[in-house]
Design a protein around this nucleic acid. Structure first.
Length: 474
RNA sequence: GGCGCCGUGCCCGAGUGGCUAAGGGAAAGGUCUGCAAAACCUUUAUUCGUGGGUUCGAUUCCCACCGGCGCCUCCA
């Protein structure tokens, strides 16, 4: 349980993971503003966090994972006007879509929390920051004063002076420093608003994540995650306001984990550039498992260039894994499910664990998966190995390893979704294959080939080998 | 302008101060096969953007340059 290494953006180095509390991990990830359909970039975060959870669970931790929905902000207000509906309806609609997309990608869902349902916690936090002198009130707005927090800039590696030197933002005259940011915004006419000590208004963008994570996870929780584009200013501001709130006696979060952007045509996939592949659209063309596989082919911090060629490659690679899995299953169906020989897969499992323990290196872990695939195939088509008495036990051991790596850890099903196999289907195929074998032995190849072609059209692939004929869905 | 990341074979992509530089995709040849498919084997980097430096030794550390990207404004 002690061997997990993870990269901490705060220290810009890899560190052994030590939880706040033995056996438990508390994680917070910044969610999205539900105001448009999610794209592939959003799904990368979803899949990365799912893998993190799964692996921590394999290491024996109990994982608590919280994620927010920014269900009130400028963009939602604008969207509600465009769609002639309420901000609540907009947030509800796109939150549902996002959850449905995440679910389709095989992600277990975090505990979702909403801004509008936690106004008390947010207001309480702002109040204390004002009372403690970290924040000031101007005309119903509340700003955090960055100069009151000496460590401002420690996450993103910049100093306030540098920022001021390179500043190219319009300075709001009411702010004491250009870098001061809004904790609370006074309501404009017609906008949704909440009562507060400073009048009607709504929270600034950054405060919600601080208030919600501290409310649900407590101070010094284990992992705070998000996309790299959130490092500055969002996470920098979160640290400032949270640690100020905690009187700098405790850190806000212990480890900061950031995943890389998904790019399209060499540019970050983002709503603002219009370079976006909505996950809905992609799901019509590719099985979610293929999309998930694609997202796992590079280390999570590396920028990932989106392309249909890459997706196609992922599909081919996944098919190779699934074919081996199904061949092993077919062999075991025929030879009886022996007690698995666990030792045979151990070297590959070690390789796999080492990769996952090294900052969730799924790209490297996949290499171990393919080692198992090769081992399975070699056993199956080397006559001496396939007929050995130990063969069923070995194949069972390899099959179990493959299942654990792919399904339990990486969350990718070895059976394509269409292959809801039933015992009836197994028996039917057994019959069909026997009949076709009869035709082949009488050299009625045209009929045998016709059966194969017809089945192919139905999505069932027959493969002949000296050991007999196997079938698989694919 | 400031902060930071990256540049590995045909493509994608791991990785390490010295051991054959993973794995996948693609292509070619071979084996097997009635054919097909699948699979297995072999081949595609004496080399890791370029030039210096440190070192007994660097793709891996340092510096410069070239090229690409992210952030500095909302952004996963």
């Amino acid at each position: 349980m002690a061997e997990l290494i993870l990269y901490n953006t705060l220290t810009r180095s890899e560190e052994p993971f030590q939880p706040r509390e033995p056996g438990k991990v508390a994680i917070y990830a910044c969610g999205l503003t539900p105001q448009a359909p999610a794209h592939v970039g959003h799904m990368r975060g979803v899949v990365v966090m799912d893998i993190v959870q799964r692996w921590l669970e394999q290491l024996g931790y109990t994982v608590q994972f919280v994620q927010n929905f920014t269900d009130i902000d400028d963009k939602i207000i604008r969207r509600a006007q465009e769609e002639h509906t309420s901000t609540t309806a907009v947030a509800e609609k796109y939150s549902r879509m996002y959850i449905e997309d995440a679910h389709a990608l095989g992600a277990r869902l975090p505990h979702f929390v909403k801004v509008t349902e936690n106004m008390d916690a947010i207001i309480e936090m702002v109040q204390r920051l004002v009372a403690d002198g970290y924040a000031y009130v101007v005309d119903g707005d509340v700003y955090f004063e960055v100069n009151k927090f000496p460590e401002y800039g420690k996450l993103s590696g910049r100093s306030v002076e540098e920022m001021q030197a390179g500043a190219r933002i319009d300075v709001d005259e009411r702010k004491r420093n250009p870098e001061d940011f809004a904790l609370w915004k006074a309501a404009k006419p017609g906008e949704p608003a909440w009562d507060s000590p400073w009048g009607k208004g709504r929270p600034g963008w950054h405060i919600e994540c601080s208030a919600l994570s501290l409310k649900y996870l407590g101070a010094a929780f284990d992992i705070h995650a998000g996309g790299m584009d959130l490092i500055f200013p969002h996470h920098e501001n979160e640290i400032a306001q949270s640690e100020a709130y905690l009187h700098c006696e405790q850190p806000f979060a212990r480890y900061w984990l950031h995943w890389g952007p998904v790019r399209l045509r060499q540019e970050k996939m983002s709503k603002s550039t219009g370079l976006v592949v909505p996950i809905r659209e992609l799901r019509e063309q590719y099985e979610p498992a293929v999309i998930r596989y694609f997202l796992l082919t590079v280390h999570y911090r590396t920028p990932l260039e989106f392309s249909y060629e890459r997706l196609q490659e992922s599909q081919a690679a996944l098919e190779r894994i699934r074919t081996a899995s199904q061949r092993a299953e077919a062999f075991l169906r025929e030879h009886g499910n022996a007690t698995a020989d666990a030792a045979i897969a151990e070297p590959y499992l070690q390789q796999f664990r080492a990769a996952m323990n090294h900052d969730f290196n799924t790209a490297q872990a996949l290499a171990a998966v393919f080692e198992v695939v090769r081992e399975i195939n070699t056993h199956l088509n080397t006559p001496e190995l396939a007929t050995a008495t130990a063969a069923p036990a070995r194949l069972a051991g390899l099959r179990n390893a493959l299942q654990w790596m792919m399904e339990t850890v990486l969350g990718i099903a070895l059976q394509p979704p269409a292959a809801a196999q039933s015992e009836t289907l197994n028996q039917l195929m057994y019959c069909v294959i026997a009949w076709r074998q009869e035709l082949r032995s009488r050299k009625l190849y045209d009929l045998a080939d016709r059966i194969r072609d017809d089945l192919k059209a139905m999505g069932i692939v027959l493969e002949d080998s000296p050991q007999g004929t196997t079938w698989r869905i694919g």
